[in-house]
Design a binder for these strands. Structure first.
Lengths: 209, 209
DNA sequence: GTCTATACTTAGATAGAC
DNA sequence: GTCTATCTAAGTATAGAC
C-alpha cells in the first residue's frame, strides 16, 4: 500500500526504519541499503527525500526530539518542592530511559563518536533539575553540601546503567555473580539509598525502608 | 627504526594504533588503512599478522585484558570488610575508569553493538563486589535490604556517567545549567551520599560530611 | 515521487615480488 | 616480514525513464 506518490507517508516510513537501524547499529554500522530494505523502498528514494546519509541521520534525531517534546507539552514538568523532589527525579529519569530506548541508544552512539551537544529540550530538563534541587536544599529538604551536578550525575548514572548495561548485567547474573532483581525493586532500592543519602544532616528524619 | 623484520615489535605497533582508533571510532568507524597510516605500516602487513579486521579487533581486546590483569596481579583485591568496603569499591571503580579510558570506550562501543559478554577477569571483580557486600551486610556495616546488584549498579553508574558523559556534562555547565565540579569533589560527594544511604537502618552511626 | 541502472569511491582482502 | 599492485564487494550518490 501507498506504493506511489505519498511524500509524507514515505518520509515517515523511511524515518521509522532509519531510527531503528541507527539505534541498533549506529551511524557507521547502518547502510542506506538496509534502510531501503527495511522500509520496503529504494535507496535513491531515500536520498531524494534526505539528500545524504548525514541528512537522514539528522532528520531522525530531529524527529525523535519533536515527538518527545510534543509528549512533554502534554505533561509539564512538576514543580520542584513537592516534598520529595529527589523521588520524582529518579522516577522521571527511570521512566525516560524505559520509554525512549531508541532515543537513548542513538544518543549513546553519538556521544561515543564525540557529539557532546545537548539534544533539543535537554537544557530545560537540566535547569529544572538544578533549580528544584537548589530549592530543596534551601528548604532543608535535602542536605546542601552535595552539588546539584553530583546529584544529577548520581541519579542519571544509576538509571543509565540499569537500562543500558542490562544484557551485560544479565550475563553476570547468569554466571552467578548476583541474584536477579526486578526493575521495580531496583527503582525502589536506589530511591531508598539516594533519598537517605541526601537527607538533611543532623536531623533524625530518615524513616523509609 | 625497526623498518624490517621485527615481528613482535610490529605487532605491538599495530595493536597500539588499532587500540587508539577502535576506542575513538569503534569497530565500524575504523579502517585498516587508518590503522596502517597511524602505525606507519602497510595494510597488507596488518592482515598478515592478524588475518582479518575482526582478528585485529579481538587481538586488541585480548591485549588490553592481558595488560590489565598483569596490573591486577601486582595489587590483589583488598579483602572486603576493612570497615568501609563501600568507600573502597567506589574509589576502585572511579580509578578504574580514570586509568583505563580506551578499555572503557572499547567496551562501550562493544556493548552498544550488542556484545554483552563479560571481559576476561570481570567476573572475578564482580564476585569480589558481591562477596564483600554480603559480608558487610552480615556484619551490619551496611543495611541489608538493598541487593548487592543494586549497590553495584548504583556505584558503577555514578562513576560511569562521570567519566563517559564528561564532554556532555561540560556542555551543560557551559550553558549555565550547573556549577563546575572537580573530579575529587565529585568522588567525595557521591561517596558521602552512598555511604550514608547504605548505613545500617535504625542505628545513629552516620557521622561523615 | 519513485524506480532501475549505473557511476564513483572506498572498504577488506589477496597475489606475488623482495 | 614487508611492500606495491590489484581484486572484489559494498558503500554513497547520481542519471534519467516513468
Amino acid at each position: 500500500m501507498a506504493a506511489a506518490r505519498d511524500g509524507e507517508g514515505t518520509r515517515r516510513k523511511i524515518l521509522g526504519a532509519a531510527e531503528e537501524l541507527f539505534a541498533e547499529r549506529g551511524f557507521d554500522g547502518t547502510t542506506i541499503r538496509e534502510v531501503a530494505e527495511r522500509s520496503g523502498l529504494s535507496g535513491p528514494l531515500i536520498l531524494f527525500h534526505f539528500q545524504t546519509k548525514e541528512g537522514l541521520y539528522e532528520a531522525v534525531k530531529d524527529d525523535i526530539v519533536r515527538r518527545w517534546q510534543a509528549n512533554l507539552d502534554g505533561s509539564p514538568l512538576p514543580k520542584g518542592g513537592a516534598g520529595a523532589f529527589v523521588d520524582v527525579m529518579i522516577e522521571a529519569a527511570f521512566a525516560f530511559y524505559r520509554d525512549n530506548p531508541t532515543m537513548v541508544r542513538i544518543a549513546n552512539w553519538g556521544r561515543l563518536a564525540g557529539d557532546d551537544a545537548p539534544w533539543g529540550g535537554e537544557e530545560e530538563i537540566h535547569r529544572w533539575y538544578r533549580t528544584s534541587l537548589v530549592e530543596a536544599q534551601r528548604r532543608k529538604e535535602i542536605r546542601d553540601d552535595i552539588s546539584p551536578l553530583a546529584i544529577t550525575a548520581l541519579i542519571s548514572g544509576a538509571v543509565h546503567v540499569w537500562w543500558e548495561f542490562r544484557g551485560h548485567m544479565e550475563e553476570h547474573v547468569r554466571q552467578g555473580s548476583y541474584e536477579p532483581l526486578s526493575d521495580d525493586a531496583y527503582l525502589d532500592q536506589i530511591t531508598a539509598v539516594i533519598r537517605r543519602g541526601l537527607a538533611p544532616l543532623g536531623g533524625e528524619k530518615e524513616k523509609e525502608a
